[in-house]
Each structure stands twice: as structure tokens, then as C-alpha cells.
Amino acid sequence: MAYEPPFSISATTLNLIASISEQLGRLSALTEQAQALRLRRANQIRTIQGSLAIEGNTLTVEQITAVLEGKPVIAPQKEVQEVKNALAVYERFEHWLPGREADMLEAHRILMMGLVDGEGNYRSGGVGVMSGSEVVHMAPPANQVPRLMSDLFDWLGRTEHHPLIASAVFHYEFEFIHPFADGNGRMGRLWQSLILARWNPLFANLPIESLVHQHQAEYYQAIGRSTQLTDGAPFIEFMLQVIDETLKEQLNPQVTPQVTPQVTPQVVLNILSRYSGLDNYCLKPRSRQELQDFCGLKDRENFRKSVLKPLLDAGWLYLEIPDKPRSSKQRYYCL
């Protein structure tokens, strides 16, 4: 009989699907503006930073941007290589087919190039998932991995479940199998995003990984809970909650006196509209004071929070000296 992953669908899951679908409709209206303001690349950088941070990489969004631009970055060579590999994978994101096993192996080869032996191949030995010094999950034997992965891809190709559910099920089953010697977390999250992006292109640009990073403990707890119950439902609910929260942050920035607004296409559009001509002015690198004077703002802290930081976070402005963000010689520019 064809393989069927064990999972149930709760009322919470159905409600989350309805909420996500509604918000995707609202967000689609901002898509063209987001592309024009380079938010697609900025969100992709946030996605890469979040995914690698879960695995212990310490590079910041600014440093990853510098790597993307070919600028030198002072950081451990292994972490810089991880970033370069991830950027190379996401450059080919639109070409990967989620139902093609060969594409996954090729993506893993690029993602782990120069980091491990046997990149692009399933593991040949046993592997366990650790939490500190404790083994929380012992993956299936290596000789079972090719069959298990073939069954999983076969299921993905014929399932009629909603892509939001199917992507989370695939992600959980992938982590349970743990098919590679290393890079399983990164690959599982990448492939869920890929499955979702083939359903709705907006998912190619949403920084879901950033929120997974913020809820890292719950992420691993959801995997463990699903394994304990032999039911993917806890993990499905967790991932849909993360997606729902990501969409809400994109659409409804929360503004408080202590917190800079969440960067959405509309936030950046408001800034550019308020300070007409700022985009052309920044084609030449400018100091903070030059930008502040251009905007006609006298309060330095207000300028930093309401203009400078949102534009940097959105990937619209760039640091001329990314390794020294607080440098007195720092200047800012746009491409």
C-alpha cells in the first residue's frame, strides 16, 4: 500500500488555514510595491539569517548583506561559507521543484558545499537529534533512508491535502527521517517554503524563518510532541501559527514608543512618500547628519527610529561600513 504519514487535522488547523488565506489576499495588494522597494531581497536575507541562526550561525542581517555584495566580513570562515551557500541556494529557489527528489539532493549539495563530506547524498550512518547531552530522537537506520524518502516524495506528489498542511507534514516527516548527516533543519525549512511558494508565490518572500528562530524552543518541542504522539498535528499547528504570525507582522506593524515599527512595504512607502526624493538623494553615500537634514528632522533619536532603522531593516538603505555599524565615518546608500 502507498505510504500515508500519520497526522490528524484539528479545528485549530482549519481556523489557521482560513486566517492565513484571508491575510494572503490582503498582502497580495502590496506585492508590486514590495518588489519595487527591494523588500523581496531584504526578506530573503532575513530568512537566511533566521534559518542559519537556529543552527548557531552568528552573522547579522547587515553582515549577510555585505557577503551578498561581495564585501569582506570579519567572522568565522565556516559561518561566512554557510551564508554564501545559503545565498546560492536561494538564488536558485525559483528553479527547484518541490516534488523532485533530485532537486533536493542538489540543493543540499550547494547548501553544505565545503562544510561536510558527502554533501548531496543521503547519510551512510546512524544519527540522533540532541538536546544538550540528551538524545531526543534516534533517526531510522541509514539503509532505510532512500526508501523512506522515496515514499515521502511519492506521497507529496499525490496528496490532495491543502498545501499549508502538506508542506508542514513533509517538513515534519523529513525531520523524523533526518536523511542527511548534517543540514537537516535547514533543508526541512527550505523545502516547506518551496512547497508553499509553488502554491502561492508570496511565500518566496516571507521571512518565516525569522519567527521560527524567535520560537526555536517551541519548534523543537512541536517536533518532539508529534513524534511522541505518532501524529504530525502538533507540528502542523505550530508551523501554521508561525505563518499566521508572519503575515500579521507584515500587514499590521505594531508601533510603541519603545519599539521601531515592523518593516512592511507600507511602512517604507510611507517614509519615501513623506520625504520625497530621498531615494535619488541616497544614490550617493550620505552621512547620518546629511540624511537627517534632508528629511528636516532635528531630533537624532526620532530620525534613527522612524526613518533610518526601518529603511536599513527593509534592505532599502545599506551601510558603507557593514562591519562597524556605529562608526563615526559611517555613510548610507541605496542601489
Rank of each mutant, 00 (worst) to 15 (best):
E209V: 10
E209M: 12
E209G: 14
E209K: 09
L211H: 04
L211R: 08
V212D: 02
V212Y: 03
H213E: 15
H213Y: 13
H215L: 10
H215K: 15
H215C: 05
Q216L: 14
A217V: 14
E218T: 12
E218R: 14
E218F: 03
E218P: 04
E218S: 09
Y219R: 05
Y219N: 04
Y220E: 04
Q221N: 12
Q221H: 14
Q221L: 14
A222M: 06
A222K: 07
A222F: 05
A222I: 12
A222P: 07
G224F: 06
R225M: 11
R225A: 10
R225S: 10
R225W: 09
S226L: 02
S226F: 02
T227Y: 12
T227S: 15
Q228S: 15
Q228V: 08
T230S: 12
T230F: 07
T230N: 12
T230R: 08
G232W: 00
G232N: 05
A233P: 07
P234Q: 03
P234T: 03
I236C: 02
I236Y: 01
E237K: 08
E237D: 15
F238I: 06
F238N: 03
F238Y: 14
M239D: 08
L240D: 09
Q241I: 10
V242C: 04
V242P: 03
I243F: 09
I243T: 07
L247G: 05
L247M: 09
L247Q: 04
L247E: 05
K248N: 10
K248G: 11
K248P: 05
Q250F: 09
L251T: 12
L251N: 06
N252M: 10
N252K: 08
Q254T: 06
T256E: 11
P257L: 08
Q258N: 13
Q258V: 11
Q258M: 13
Q258R: 15
V259L: 15
V259Q: 13
T260G: 10
P261G: 03
Q262C: 00
Q262H: 03
V263C: 00
V263T: 11
V263Y: 01
T264Y: 00
P265Q: 01
Q266L: 02
V267K: 00
V268P: 04
V268I: 11
V268Q: 02
L269P: 05
L269S: 15
N270C: 02
N270K: 07
N270D: 14
I271C: 03
S273L: 05
R274N: 08
Y275A: 08
Y275P: 06
Y275C: 08
